[in-house]
Design a protein around this nucleic acid. Structure first.
Lengths: 194, 194
DNA sequence: GTCTATACAGTGATAGAC
DNA sequence: GTCTATCACTGTATAGAC
């Protein structure tokens, strides 16, 4: 429940974001959204065309937020390795998983191009952003020239996304942290001089 | 009486396995299972206590199968690096995702210890199995002694699980393959002599 | 073991009053 | 803009006949 200062449309979107993160698209019912937001049936269908429309607004906002969070770390100070390390080690609520990545396991999201688009664009942007940083590191001689920026970036983002899977399976953040350490140890040893 | 082919209980389990893979636990209804298996309502509740009980049987079988498939590659011939490469490059229906890993995004599976157990045990076994191979490679001098077997194994399994996420987001297997190549390039360069 | 009938809450949406 | 009423349909399960 949100304070009365925030308008109904806003509360609906925020409640939907929470539920999509917790239960996914298939597992989130309009009824649950209404209960959490404190809005009535009529309000929801006044502001949004239906469940997919509201979910789209929620997914777009979550995607934007994830992008901003990542950019805050990746665009920070430090060497390429340090910025990648900062991204990998950044504080996360590991057991909750990634609010964007989890949507890829939702059949109704993947089947709908409009719902999938923000997910695709965000993860694509993230890989490109990291690929550029790896290339930067190569040019500076921090990484071996044999490395491919896009491939390393894909491995980095996959390690994070897969780390969530392992952590949720285990009921503990430990496998996530182990994977991150493993990847960083490989990256650290992939220097031209090593 | 085997003359009529596969028995009903078997068909129910197989149909449930398919649906869990395609739509997850929350997205799979008893009705859909009955339609796909050709069984009637009564048969299902005769053989199984309900949806969770049937799902448990299906998940256990899928987990066993995944383990056998992985062991087939990891226990094969070749150096430690080659066996890990064989595991990473093994043919996969990438866009369908991992039938075990995808269950970790299902709130009702993660919330139920009995349903989560086969998922946990399988991914845990996989990490341990690969960790042993990495240790083997270290002892043989193929991998740098600075590497930690369990950490590298976590990174490997996470790259696969996360690769599925990236591929499904993109609607293409390309990011999965890129991540695998990236990880292998890092592993290949993490030799004591490199 | 399998079938049909039944139950009853939940889902996703529409209609119309205020 | 928001509310309540209503609706057709699905989800999950039980009962009892065959």
């Amino acid at each position: 429940m949100y304070s009365r200062g925030v308008n109904t449309s806003e509360r609906l979107i925020e409640s939907t974001r929470e539920l999509l993160w917790e239960r996914g698209y298939v597992g989130t019912s309009p009824k649950a959204i209404l209960e959490r937001s404190g809005a009535g049936q009529g309000s929801m269908y006044h502001h949004f065309k239906g469940k997919p429309d509201l979910a789209l607004a929620a997914i777009r906002r979550t995607a934007e937020e994830m992008r901003a969070t990542a950019e805050g770390v990746l665009g920070g100070p430090g060497t390429p390795y340090e910025r990648i390390e900062a991204y990998l080690r950044r504080e996360r609520d590991v057991l909750r998983g990634c609010p964007v990545g989890r949507l890829t396991m939702d059949p109704d999201v993947v089947a709908d191009d409009e719902l999938r688009a923000p997910v695709d664009e965000t993860l694509d942007w993230l890989r490109e952003r990291i690929a550029g940083i790896v290339e930067e590191g190569r040019e500076q001689g921090q990484f071996a020239s044999s490395l491919d920026g896009e491939e390393i970036a894909a491995a980095i983002v996959a390690t994070v996304q897969g780390g969530y899977v392992l952590a949720r399976a285990a009921g503990s953040p430990a496998p996530f942290d182990a994977g991150v350490r493993g990847l960083l140890s490989l990256l650290a040893s992939a220097t031209p001089s090593a």
